[in-house]
């Protein structure tokens, strides 16, 4: 475990040095993420100019939900996004060999190679949005609530990570996983909606339970709202989803690894 922590710290050091070399790039990408987060908040703000509730959720409850969804997404962007996407390209070009020769689990080495400090920086902004929303709602979550909230956010991160690894692992079979990026972003749009808004059976089964993007963001947000509070069903569902999706990702990744035949694979 300590061995992996040391590897990860070396990776983090490398990523920070790299960022310091390309400072302009870092500023531009930080702005990009910041602007996209603003766009999502703007949408909420405009809709609530004309209505009082969306599926029973008030304006700042929605801000809390969107903030939570953004927080999970920023963590994903900051810690895993670049590595996982490069993995798809590396499988195609054969550069993936590099990870096979490294001193550690291949999935760990390949998916944690690069950190994006702009994503990590913006996770503070997303966190600030969540804090602002709780303040506006007059909520005073205790230490236990905050710890549970963070656990749920981390569980959500595990699910997102696993779905992304699974999507990119397709490259082991198809050699190309291009176009996944766009579809992933479409999927995250659903995570900014309250579960109560899903009225149809098909959308509910598909986006709430089969691809649990809605549960991931709704569960931690509901925990902080007094009218919902802590619910074992939601917390349990989230843990089961995280364990199941991660196990599936590990299984599929290692099955795919067997098919990997280096360059021109």
């Amino acid at each position: 475990m300590l061995h992996y922590l040391r590897i990860w710290l070396a990776t983090a050091r490398y990523s920070i040095v790299r960022t310091l070399m390309f400072r302009g790039d870092f500023i531009i990408w930080s702005l990009v993420e910041l602007l996209w987060m603003t766009v999502n908040l703007l949408l909420i703000s405009v809709i609530y100019e004309h209505t009082k509730s969306i599926a029973g959720w008030s304006k700042y409850e929605m801000v809390l939900l969107v903030g939570t969804s953004m927080l999970i997404q920023r963590f994903l962007m900051g810690f895993f996004w670049s590595s996982i996407f490069e993995m798809g390209r590396n499988i195609r070009t054969g550069y993936f060999d590099f990870f096979l020769a490294q001193p550690g689990n291949v999935m760990f080495m390949a998916t944690t190679r690069k950190l994006d400090p702009d994503g990590i920086l913006n996770s503070f902004v997303a966190g600030a949005v969540v804090i602002y929303a709780t303040h506006k709602l007059g909520l005073h979550p205790g230490v236990g609530d905050v710890a549970l909230y963070l656990c749920m956010v981390l569980s959500g991160l595990v699910v997102h990570y696993s779905i992304l690894v699974l999507s990119i692992a397709i490259a082991f079979w198809l050699t190309s996983a291009q176009g996944i990026e766009g579809s992933y972003f479409t999927l995250t749009e659903f995570s900014r909606l309250p579960k109560e808004a899903f009225k149809g059976v098909v959308t509910r089964v598909l986006f709430v339970w089969l691809l649990p993007v809605v549960v991931i963001s709704n569960a931690p947000a509901r925990l902080l709202l007094p009218r919902y509070g802590f619910d074992w069903k939601w917390a349990g569902a989230l843990l089961v989803f995280a364990a199941a999706w991660f196990a599936l990702a590990v299984f599929v990744f290692h099955r795919g690894l067997r098919r990997y035949s280096s360059a021109s694979s």
Partner: peptide
């Protein structure tokens, strides 16, 4: 879904 829920109130 989003606008459907928004229009449910008005």
């Amino acid at each position: 879904i989003l606008w459907g829920a928004a229009f449910a109130g008005s």
